[in-house]
Structures are given as C-alpha cells and as structure tokens.
C-alpha cells in the first residue's frame, strides 16, 4: 500500500481538534498546557457546546488561552477567575462555564476566590494546571512547589522552615460541601491523556446538570523553568510529583 493510498479523507483517524485555532500557541515546546487545550477543545466539540461555552482565562502562561480555543472567553485579573466564572454562570446558567488556572493563579493569589467558589457550589468547572512553579514570570516558587525543589526564589530547594509546606488545594476542595467532582489527573502519556479527557468531560457534564462545582487538577510540567527537556520533565514529574500529588478521583458525588 502506498502513502497516497493511506492518506485519504476516509482513512483519517486523528487531527488537530476543530476548536483549536490555527494560530500557533506561544507555549514552550512540550508544555502540558497545549495538551490540556486540545482536550478541552475536543470535549466541548463532543458535547456540542461550542456555541454555549465560556472559558475564563487566568494570568500566567495560559493568559492567551482565549486566542487558542474557539469559544467565548473572559480574561480575569490574577486569581479572580472563579469569581468571574461565578458571575457569568449565574447570569447565563445555560452556558458551560469553566476557569483555566495555573497553580500560582489558583493556589496563591486566588486561593480565596477558588475556595469560596468551590464551597458555594457554583455550577462551574475549574481546570487547575499544577506545574509547581510560576511559569510565566520565570520560575519562582509557588505554594505548590515541592519540598527540596529548586526554583529561582528558593535556589537551595524549598525549605519548610523558611517557605512552609506545599499546599494541596485539591484535597481541601474534596472536603467542601459545595464540590461535586474533584479529581487529579495528568497528561504525560496516551493513557493519562485519555483519562484526563474523561475527567474533564465528567466535570463539564456535572456542571451543566447543576450538581455543584468541579475541580480537575492536571499535574503538569514546566520543562523550561524546571530546566529539563520535555521528556525528562515528564519523568521527573512521575518520580517526584506523583508520590506527593497522587492521581485519581478524590470525590465523585455526581450520581448521588
């Protein structure tokens, strides 16, 4: 069989998601943000919600998410995405409303907004990209930075005596009455990516069924600021992040 015989429309099995715009994404080569953008694009299209979805983009590397996924967006001030999502969802309850936030945005400056939106049980989904660092600003320590992990603001490694302990927002979220579905996923290989996609789908569906707030943490890499190749960053994440940020569902009240 020749290449020409295989490359025909009827044999197509995978292509860039239709909702992912053609404009090149500014993310560093191999960054997890791109994979998650693809999943969100696929899920929204599969749910037929392209005309009814409103994303809230953060401050952080994903600030331009609104340029990449072809739905409606609002751009929030740093950390305020869950507050904005609350307003949007209350005004337009038939819309699929989600925030897309990094760990600096969500677990540091926006901790208050995040916890209160989740606790109020707003019918939204929070997609939480935890790469344990402030990516956009050059790799400073975040509340999620692992003990011993080196960043530009803790060059000798995070020391609990000086910097406190890494914050597990997802574990906190699971204890809140307002949350319906709380899960921690990753996107470093095909199996993980398919699971993460199912989790995003479930969260979006629960939010549309009015079952409360949903948090999907994606344990991610920032190969640039971790100063590793994308491949090595995935390995480092598996070895160092997963023992602390354990993967899986922490809460699923969707069928209760």
């Amino acid at each position: 069989m020749t290449r020409e015989e295989i490359i025909r429309e009827e044999n197509l099995v995978y292509k860039k998601p239709e909702l992912l715009n053609d404009v090149p994404m500014h993310y560093c080569p191999g960054c997890s943000h791109g994979v998650v953008h693809k999943l969100i694009s696929e899920v929204i299209a599969e749910m037929g919600m392209q005309e009814k979805s409103i994303g809230i983009s953060p401050v952080g590397c994903a600030v331009f998410a609104y340029k990449y996924i072809d739905i409606d967006w609002e751009e929030a001030a740093h950390g305020r995405a869950p507050a904005l999502a609350t307003a949007v969802k209350r005004l337009l309850p038939d819309r699929l409303v989600f925030t897309y936030q990094g760990d600096g945005d969500l677990a540091c400056i926006g901790t208050g907004e995040t916890i209160h939106a989740l606790n109020r049980g707003e019918n939204i989904t929070i997609i939480f990209i935890n790469n344990a660092i402030y990516g956009m600003t050059g790799g400073q320590m975040a509340p999620t930075t692992l003990l011993g992990m080196k960043t530009v603001t803790c060059p000798y490694g995070r020391d609990p005596k000086l910097h406190g302990y890494p914050l597990k927002i997802t574990e906190i979220a699971a204890t809140l009455e307002g949350t319906c579905y709380v899960t921690r996923q990753s996107v470093q290989n095909v199996g993980a990516i398919l699971k993460a996609k199912r989790a995003i789908r479930k969260a979006f569906e629960y939010s549309m069924q009015g079952k409360g707030s949903n948090l999907v943490e994606i344990v991610s890499t920032c190969n640039t600021n971790w100063k590793m190749t994308p491949e090595k960053a995935n390995q480092w994440m598996e070895e160092n992040m997963f023992p602390f940020y354990q993967l899986g569902d922490l809460k699923d009240n969707g069928n209760k």
């Binding site: 995978y14 292509k15 860039k16 994404m25 993310y27 080569p29 791109g34 693809k38 095909v190």
Partner: peptide, 11 residues
C-alpha cells in the same frame, strides 16, 4: 495524541 501543539494528522 501526545503532541501538545496538535501538529500530527494520522490516517
């Protein structure tokens, strides 16, 4: 599936 930038089309 793993390509972060959606560069690959498969037949």
């Amino acid at each position: 599936i793993v390509c972060p930038d959606g560069c690959i089309t498969v037949y």
